[in-house]
């Protein structure tokens, strides 16, 4: 299993320059990947894998998203994994005036279009890899697993304890078998962390409660799952590895580039 780190782009107190420092620091410390929430990344690195965890596909222009992802993949020399799902927030759809009904079907159509666009090189720079960026698909419904298995290169899980990841992996593999795909899907997991004692713990919890306020009482549960000690983080990483995870991305909940150093230290 390879372990990467998220960019703090949605954490308050992260100016653009801090993001650049963060990305370079993560690469310098040997982390495997850089992840972002619902954004396409602009690259300042050279070797590290780039992954979106995840972009809400149906509220975006299909052609534009395909082009942006193709560009980042080309600029980065084929290092992008594009993670997409229908997302969990209804207000994302309200804000962009897309209906929530039919969003699953729209995402499936988008996935088919991305591939066609990257392969046919109709718009944007030529992809570095023949099929374009790696496509990861998230979600937990029967439809989502089938969508992943029909169109994706892998599955991106929405977060939670290792046993929740393991249960989702079993369903992802079953769907992959059902669609008669060769090989196996890439399996991506994620978790939140804040390292640096009580202050970091508190700031991280406040950020998660705010970010997930739309889920009502679940925000507390998500905040309670934040990994705030070296022991909890190592146990989480071990649990994901045992559950068959290929790539784990640890997402920051407090800004400050020292988080990357602390993470690398715990993982070392």
């Amino acid at each position: 299993m390879r372990v990467g780190v998220g960019l703090p782009s949605t954490v308050p107190g992260s100016p653009g320059s801090a993001i650049v420092d963060w990305a370079r620091r993560a690469e310098a410390l040997g982390l495997a990947s850089l992840g972002v929430l619902d954004r396409i990344v602009y690259d300042v690195t050279e070797r590290i894998s780039l992954v979106t965890m995840v972009v809400i596909g149906p509220i975006r222009s299909t052609a534009l998203l395909a082009k942006q992802a193709g560009s980042v993949d080309a600029i980065s020399g084929g290092r992008l994994s594009l993670g997409v799902s229908i997302g969990a927030r209804a207000d994302d759809y309200e804000a962009t005036e897309w209906p929530t009904t039919g969003r699953g079907r729209r995402l499936s159509e988008q996935l088919a279009t991305f591939r066609a666009q990257w392969e046919e090189e109709a718009i944007g720079p030529s992809p570095v890899r023949p099929g374009g960026p790696t496509l990861l698909v998230g979600g937990s419904s029967g439809e989502a697993f089938a969508r992943m298995a029909r169109h994706g290169d892998g599955y991106v899980h929405g977060g939670g304890p290792p046993r929740a990841f393991a249960a989702a992996v079993a369903k992802a593999l079953a769907a992959w078998t059902d669609l008669e795909r060769p090989g196996r899907p890439e399996l991506w997991g994620q978790g939140y962390f804040a390292l640096g004692g009580d202050a970091a713990t508190e700031a991280g919890a406040a950020y998660l409660r705010d970010y997930y306020a739309f889920t009502g009482p679940f925000a507390d549960r998500i905040a309670a799952g934040n990994l705030t000690s070296a022991g909890a983080l190592r146990e989480f990483v071990r649990g994901y590895e045992e559950a068959g995870c290929d790539h784990l991305v640890l997402l920051p909940t407090v800004a400050g580039v020292e988080q990357v150093d602390r993470l690398a230290e715990v993982l070392a």
């Binding site: 088919a112 591939r115 298995a149 029909r150 994706g152 290169d153 008669e180 795909r181 060769p182 090989g183």
Partner: peptide, 9 residues
């Protein structure tokens, strides 16, 4: 097409 990059293509 062979299903390495997806089924039903």
């Amino acid at each position: 097409r062979p299903r390495a990059a997806g089924a039903d293509r």
